[in-house]
């Protein structure tokens, strides 16, 4: 379904990703963990080419892109396979919640406007924002904006949804509402890759956890394996700050 082969990425002389191999099956929920600067967000952004990998191969849904010399249309094709939920929400500021969700349907997928509207309202209701259709992003709280962001991603019916630290810029009391929406769509069997710092959430929702440090995958496994009995020293060190019941001990 999704296959990354030897993804490498350098910013100048600093190599951020040192050859990542990753396979994600259809319907899987994968959480990517790792300390700041480990390359986890860069990896996620490489998957839809917001970051240009220096080398490697990306396959999503039987479409393979070689990162050496991709054409514009190949990049565009790859991007259409995925959707992204951003840390900073990145809702279109000049469009209402409803317009934000409709935009991709109408402009990219050429769905007739009325049909797109019905579908978008449905999705906004699903994320609990049926009453905020005509609100602009500036009128919404962070949690509400992020839920619109999730609806916008869902609307495209992508093969995979990429979550880039979806709760990191939220006030603590707003984290819950966003996580519960993600939890809900995880249950629907949508393929998701989530970069997160919410250990408890990763443990609960993900079927598969990956620990990245310094541009390489240090360890991977089920949540039980990784959280319960990490094998690598680096993983143990990282997880020490976190106790199994989902509370940071700082």
């Amino acid at each position: 379904m999704i296959k990354l082969t030897q993804i490498k990425k350098s910013f100048g002389r600093h190599q951020v990703l040192k050859g990542i191999d990753l396979t994600v099956e259809k319907g899987q929920v994968v959480a990517i963990l790792g300390p700041s600067g480990s390359g986890k967000t860069t990896l996620l952004r490489c998957m839809n080419y917001l970051e240009r990998p220096s080398e490697g191969e990306i396959t999503i849904d039987e479409f393979t892109l070689n990162c050496r010399r991709p054409s514009k249309s190949d990049i565009h094709e790859l991007r259409k396979k995925s959707a992204m939920v951003f840390q900073q929400y990145n809702l279109f500021r000049h469009k209402t919640a409803l317009e934000n969700v409709m935009e991709g349907l109408v402009i990219v997928q050429k769905v007739p406007k009325e049909q797109a509207r019905v579908r978008s309202i449905e999705l906004l209701e699903k994320v609990g924002l049926g009453s905020k259709l005509d609100s602009y992003p500036s009128q919404l709280s962070g949690g509400q904006q992020q839920r619109v962001g999730i609806a916008r991603a869902l609307a495209l019916n992508p093969k995979v949804i990429l979550f880039d630290e979806p709760t990191s810029s939220l006030d603590p009391e707003l984290v819950g509402e966003v996580l519960s929406v993600i939890r809900k769509i995880a249950k629907e069997g949508i393929t998701m890759i989530i970069v997160t710092h919410e250990m408890g959430f990763a443990q609960e929702v993900a079927g598969h956890v990956i620990f990245i440090d310094d541009g390489v995958i240090v360890e991977r496994g089920t949540p039980n394996e990784l959280f319960g009995s990490p094998k690598e020293e680096r993983t143990k060190q990282f997880l020490k700050r976190f106790t199994p019941d989902g509370v940071y001990s700082i």
């Binding site: 839809n48 080419y49 917001l50 990145n90 500021r93 935009e103 991709g104 991603a153």
Partner: peptide, 24 residues
């Protein structure tokens, strides 16, 4: 982030500029 979001929903550069970036 605005143009990145536009790309992430599959817009071409032209669409992203015309519909998202230029109006703002």
């Amino acid at each position: 982030g605005q143009i990145e979001a536009a790309y992430s929903i599959g817009m071409t550069t032209r669409q992203a500029l015309g519909r998202i970036v230029f109006p703002q």
